[in-house]
Design a protein around this nucleic acid. Structure first.
Lengths: 350, 350
DNA sequence: CCTTAGCACTCTCCGGTCGAGAGTGCTAAC
DNA sequence: GTTAGCACTCTCGACCGGAGAGTGCTAAGG
């Protein structure tokens, strides 16, 4: 966004070193450490001055006076934009990517393996968003009361597939109201092609629905979650997140996991990541608070789309704490998404 | 196994109360609490004596002198065997179970929903083991080196399905050795019906393999994990585990998650649970150390098989800390497994 | 003989204090 | 502009001591 090139080369070197060291150790890094471990040709005192400047510019933070420095989200951003240059994957890893689809048949299995491989190569949690079935539309949608606290949302698509979800009801609701709601949703969504149903569209519909019937409060959001039915997201290696020191404390792990388990939320996240024209192969990085999702304030997402003949089918991403090896993550995601696209093209472009 | 009926009725009441309270609060429960919260008609002092006896019998433990008591694994066992009587599911929950398959099509989707529902009803992590494809056999199996540290295991079944797994290699291994190993495995496994491939069988083969080539060390186990390819296990609501106070500390959550993510390990667990003749609908309970898997020393598993016309197809289970509401869990698992079996029978018994 | 009240004892938990260690910011010299 | 030196600040771990909870034992009461 800004401020990138205004740094002196020396500041750049130092910021790079801080990021590198912190990613490695997860400990705030001090001037002494920097002057010893990195060949900056500077004494600790000089580095201290530079660190102080970098902090003033908002690129570093101090957890407390007299601890070392830690990169801020903006610091990571500068690092990602200007200071790193992700290499091509080392040949042994690249070989694994090339062999990825070896004798794998079936899209679903292919994507599962992709997720696993990405997770292994990047040493992180990996997400793969499965393509929506193209061209199919919503035929009907119905809402049935199951108990006072749960309703069943059933959905039939033009291809004949049926899906259903349990929807928690925030408050008991009369059958008649449910009927009204049901027909409202039907009117809004019938014949809608599934692949036009982004999170934003659903959000808009939900807004109208709330106006229509105020008592439904947050049911809208729940429905959105539930509507993400076909958008399954494959998650691999969640345990990596749980092992990060920054998430050990308190109930953070629990929150994160719950988030990852609610497919809808993950889809929402990914939708918000795609900034229109992102060609397959372009890697996007979202850092910490840039996600604007409280649960992910301390996480970063490195993602790229994959597709077929230029058309985007899905997305593949790596998720970790903001203290992420961005360079490696970008290398992996870039390589895997390219490879996946080319496999799909090879295989399905008859 | 023993010791059940030898308890006086009063001891039974007290043990029941201890289990009940501890499950609820996750805090060691003391004599005073018991005499106040439960209508035992006894003073704290009397209860203390009984608690002392129960501890001597190994049914209770004290985390430290002068803390309250906590049920031991054996205590839970006695509770499960003799002291509880799981009721039928309350009608609202039962209704949800009855509506379970409403308009759901496709086995995979049905099982996913089953897992989710089970998790919701029991308020726990739920596992569903997917049926193996019946009658299909292994046609060929090949092992290809991908890098020094990874090989690819590819498998073709008689139905034509192909699966592959990356197998980590403990040590670099020559192509020629891999070839030998590959043909050995082929000889052992070719034409083997998939549904006879239990963990025990694989274990036996792996043992022979180790003898055959000592340098392969633990590759055997890895292969077993990898071989469980079709045995996918659906896991729902893992975040519940992460939220339990007993797992907050240290890296326990990470371990548990890693365990759940390695499908092979879970299958192994489930295999070891099935004690031969378990008819569909019979609920099995494995408590803590009974699992004999270090990772699960503090977990309990409540499971039942499901099937079609008397034949077992898979298994459904609830997983939680040993401090589990066994009664509720049994109710849910029993009800869901019955229902699932009857849905399958209805639908697939043409 | 079983039950209960009373009491001493033990153990954890919590708050406060203290010293060690790490790292900073500032100043003065090079 | 760079560096050495030094005082200052802050965290972290160890240690201590009191409060609280719970036990085990003993002796009195039904």
């Amino acid at each position: 966004m800004m401020a990138g090139p205004s740094l002196t080369p020396r500041k750049r070197d130092i910021l790079r070193a801080v990021v590198h060291d912190y990613v490695l150790t997860a400990e705030p890094v001090g001037s002494r450490t920097l002057s010893r471990k990195y060949e900056l040709g500077l004494s600790a005192a000089t580095i201290r001055n530079e660190l102080s400047d970098l902090e003033e510019e908002g690129l570093l933070r101090q957890p407390h006076t007299s601890a070392g420095r830690v990169p801020s989200d903006r610091g990571y951003r500068v690092f990602v934009n200007d200071l790193m240059d992700p290499p091509e994957l080392p040949s042994d890893k690249q070989r694994m990517v090339d062999h990825m689809a070896y004798q794998v048949e079936g899209l679903q299995e292919l994507l599962h393996q992709t997720a696993r491989l990405t997770a292994v190569l990047a040493g992180c949690t990996a997400l793969v968003r499965v393509p929506r079935p193209r061209g199919s539309r919503i035929r009907t949608l119905s809402l049935v009361r199951v108990s006072d606290r749960e309703a069943l949302l059933a959905l039939v698509t033009s291809s004949g597939a049926v899906t259903s979800r349990l929807v928690p009801l925030p408050a008991p609701i009369a059958d008649s109201e449910l009927l009204i709601l049901s027909s409202f949703l039907n009117a809004q969504l019938r014949d809608r092609p599934l692949d036009t149903l982004t999170y934003k569209t659903l959000r808009a519909i939900s807004a109208r629905m709330e106006r229509y019937q105020a008592c439904l409060a947050d049911l809208g959001d729940r429905l959105i979650d539930a509507l993400q039915f076909q958008d399954e997201v494959i998650v691999a290696n969640t345990s990596h997140l749980a092992r990060q020191p920054e998430f050990q404390a308190s109930s953070k792990v629990g929150h994160l996991l719950a988030f990852l388990e609610s497919g809808g939320a993950v889809v929402q996240l990914m939708d918000s990541t795609v900034d229109e024209a992102s060609e397959p192969g372009t890697v996007q990085v979202r850092i910490g608070s840039e996600n604007a999702l409280a649960d992910l304030a301390e996480c970063s997402l490195v993602s790229a789309t994959y597709g077929l003949r230029g058309q985007t089918l899905g997305e593949i991403a790596v998720l970790g704490p903001t203290r992420l090896d961005y360079s490696a993550a970008v290398s992996v995601v870039r390589s895997v998404s390219r490879r996946l696209s080319s496999i799909l093209t090879e295989r399905f472009s008859l």
